[in-house]
Design a binder for these strands. Sequence first.
DNA 1: CCATTTCTGGACTTGCTAGTCCATTTTTCG
DNA 2: CGAAAAATGGACTAGCAAGTCCAGAAATGG
Lengths: 216, 216
Amino acid sequence: MTKLTAKGAATRQRIIDGAAAVIREVGLRDTTLDDIRMRTATSKSQLFHYFPSGRDELLLAVAQFEADRVLLDQQPHLSDLTTWESWQQWKAALLRRYRKQGTTCPMAVLMSELGRTDPAAQAVTRSLLLRWRTDLAAGVRAMQATGTAPAALDPDRFAGAIVAAIQGGVAILLATGSSTDLDAVLDLLLEQLGTPEDVSAARSRGGVRASVSGRP
Amino acid sequence: MTKLTAKGAATRQRIIDGAAAVIREVGLRDTTLDDIRMRTATSKSQLFHYFPSGRDELLLAVAQFEADRVLLDQQPHLSDLTTWESWQQWKAALLRRYRKQGTTCPMAVLMSELGRTDPAAQAVTRSLLLRWRTDLAAGVRAMQATGTAPAALDPDRFAGAIVAAIQGGVAILLATGSSTDLDAVLDLLLEQLGTPEDVSAARSRGGVRASVSGRP
DNA sequence: CCATTTCTGGACTTGCTAGTCCATTTTTCG
DNA sequence: CGAAAAATGGACTAGCAAGTCCAGAAATGG
């Protein structure tokens, strides 16, 4: 990547955006460079001009793009997890995001294709997970500072558990179309953050539902 | 599948076993029918004789095989979740299994390739998740029957949360190589099953560790 | 033991997709 | 302006992997 004019940078970005869109629509498996070419109104030589090592380099850029989007979509809540209510709002936003996304998860798909081979791809995932848990842990510490959350809770460990819960809940959402489990596992974990009054209030409001389950 | 002689059935099974092994070793992306052919000492015509619609049909059979293995590897613990100790043993077996498996998850990979397109593939996943959660819920009910676990806990909802936690914890294990989060999220959930004495005893034994975290 | 079905070997076809190459146009900047 | 660098168009190549086909070996069963 020697020099990039404004026009060049715009084209490059257009390719990434378009590739991300195509992948979201038809899945990575059925996305060819020609599909991306058509969608973005570019030629073969442009693709290889901006991503010299080809397909994988482009997909890596798309993965980076999608990773940033994951965190962006949780804002502004993710940066302000200072009260019980703000945690609930964050959770609601998260559920909305993934329900809307439906049974497609570009990030998961990209990583399962690139992840095992390319160290650069692993770095993208790790960075995403790290930023995610860092923000969550900061929220836990904020809750502890105000005396809301129990001091015995290890913020980093708890943050890791939350991230894992999200990953798994989303995986099940992808496989079954139901967000019940995502909702359940988050509720069960978040209960540990609030005062007993908060929790029982949420329960009675249906925030922590009694029973749904059924077919997975 | 009209008729299958004993020899034929054996060959068919040999193909599935071999395909599963190859996929575990080199990943689905780099597994070709020729690889499977060589590994299983079969010819092209045999592959298509036993799996007439080709590659996808074979992969589906492999997915079924791996799904069964997921549950088998949790036995006998999964069928006997009647005490606090048995839950802990189950958890330990689960962690061993996935740590050993390392950064490869055939099931996840297979589903991400087949899942979105083929309804039969989705059925495999759904069936796996359903059987899993059913066994877990039975365990919760057993704990409630003896008065160990709080009666207020919804067994199905809790079972769903556990399954989600496992999925996510494993996903992170695959991406980062660390099983810390899988351990953490399971501990945080399982705490709700035991008496306060059980939990504090486990904590002091290091079963529920204070802090590890660090790089994800 | 013979006819029928199942099983096996391996060459061949087909189609697709990543990647290459070079000619041409556009932009940059001294 | 004018030369160098960057951007673009699109035909062409290479190679691989899935799937087809038919001939022949092994087994089944009456």
